[in-house]
Amino acid sequence: MKWSHFFTSAVGRKIVMALTGLFLISFLIVHVGLNSCIFNDLPYFDHNDNGSMFNRAAHFMGASLVIRIMEIGLLAGILLHIIQGYAVEVKNRSMRSKGYQVNLGSRGSTWMSRSMALLGTLVFLYLVIHVAQFWWPSRVSHDLEKVTYNGIEMHNLYLRMYEVFQHGWVVILYLVGVAALGFHLLHGFHSAFRSIGVHNKKYLFMLKSLGYGFSIVVCLLFALMPVSMYLNWVSPFN
């Protein structure tokens, strides 16, 4: 079987979606872990941190060549997931030219499982804003304030976060984006494993539970970031 055919059949396309999806999930783990460094500024941990832990972690991510190369892989993964996702959606939608008068609707399936393209689009729009606000200034245009720790100068990304999240509407936009990501993951996490062939009921139950837990914890942490900055639970000044 030719590779081109292998990846473009009805099953192959879903295998691509699953593999890229799982790759992006692994990225989310790194991203949420690293960004959670901002919570080190909470009084419970180290109120004088003022973002130094986060800034240094972000600097490590930006300065190391290995990670910059992985970033290219990540970009490829995202693009593939988006392009293939739309291709699958368009193809699937075209398979029923004439619809029903009375639809099956929600009988037998969850809303998020039927709305992956919509949720994915919301996540994509959110991603564009997110990249423009953080990734672009720190990696491309370099127009961020500088800060020095132990004699090493780096971007004060933490300050940037704080400034961005002082606007209520940005916080709301982020919450909507994160919610869309959460619902996308609620279905996508276990569905990805099904698509690459996990059929053992024992594992499917485990993966579904893990997927729900993962989606909730990751999105809660992401949601807390803009909220805690907006409410000044963590801030660069104290």
């Binding site: 009805a10 699937n92 099956l104 037998g108 399936s109 099904r194 690459i196 062939g197 996990v198 499917l204």
Partner: peptide, 29 residues
């Protein structure tokens, strides 16, 4: 079309064929 694992097929199947067969088919493929 492709399967997106919504589960609607399994819910309406008169013979209660399980959707885990689809995962098995994906694995075989």
């Amino acid at each position: 079309g492709s399967c997106t694992f919504t589960g609607a097929c399994e819910a309406v199947c008169p013979k209660e064929i399980s959707i885990t067969n689809i995962s098995r088919m994906h694995k075989d493929y």
